[in-house]
Amino acid sequence: MNSIIGTDEIGDVIVISTQGYLNKDLGEEIFALVEKNISDGKKKFIINLAQSDIVNSIGASIMIEIIEELQEADGTLAFCTLAPIVEKTFTIMGLTKYCSTFESQEAALEHMA
């Protein structure tokens, strides 16, 4: 169902992979995970949404909160492998103004390096 299916530390980047509906529940799960990692000193995050082909505005607004948290901590966030409808929702919600999106995880990692 809707969950985080993987958290990988690749170099100094934390890659969070999800599946299912990026809604309030999954959004808050990601938020908590990012918050914990920020407190552990991590600053670079990639959220891989390859297996999340739908997001609602609540999920998108929680992503904005994550971006705000990271801005406070002088960190960065990127998204990768977004379904077109997810990318469109992110754009409408103004999310893409504050973070980058990439077609692949490799491209996102390269950007973070």
Binding site: Y21, N23, D53, I54, V55, N56, S57, I58, I85, T89
Partner: peptide, 11 residues
Amino acid sequence: LLTILLVLNAS
């Protein structure tokens, strides 16, 4: 269905 769920913020 996905489009409808998205716009209504339905679970």
